[in-house]
Design a protein around this nucleic acid. Structure first.
Length: 131
DNA sequence: CATCTGACGACCG
DNA sequence: GCGGTCGCCAGAT
């Protein structure tokens, strides 16, 4: 059953619910704005465990680069739903440049004035040396 | 308690 | 662009 993690996951669900139609979020960004310690992975767990029937637009959550990571059945459904949400698909991935929260360039500004969640501690650690 | 897996992200070759 | 590897953490067995 749900444990204390539920609290963190709830933040994820809350964030997902706030995603506007035609917009998509990545697990990484979602994890960062929810301040999940597990990083993108916990975001994925949260989504996987997301209660179906609470109006959670899970389909608006995609992987980095707008790629659909989930397996076929869900991916197919997700893609269909996203397209129905006016989300632009570029081949097999979502057009993050148009529907994603891109806080790298000023392009995100033209979106709707969404406050950039500004990235924080990356879950990954760069390899200092590999020698 | 030990171990694997996972709706991840990013880097490297 | 693709595949493999590393890192992080939580849940399941």
């Amino acid at each position: 059953m749900e444990r204390k993690s539920n609290a963190a996951w709830e933040r994820v669900y809350c964030a997902v619910k706030k995603i506007r139609a035609g917009r998509v979020l990545t697990y990484g960004q979602l994890a960062r704005m929810a301040k999940l310690r597990g990083g993108a992975r916990e975001a994925g767990h949260a989504m996987a465990a997301s209660p179906r029937g609470q109006s959670i637009p899970w389909h608006r959550v995609v992987g980095a680069g707008g790629r659909l990571l989930i397996r076929e059945p869900l991916a197919s459904l997700q893609r269909r739903l996203l397209q129905s949400e006016k989300v632009i698909f570029s081949g097999h991935h979502v057009d993050m440049a148009a529907c994603g929260y891109t806080f790298s360039k000023a392009q995100s500004r033209k979106q709707n004035g969404a406050k950039t969640p500004v990235p924080r501690k990356p879950a990954y650690r760069k390899r200092p040396t590999r020698d």
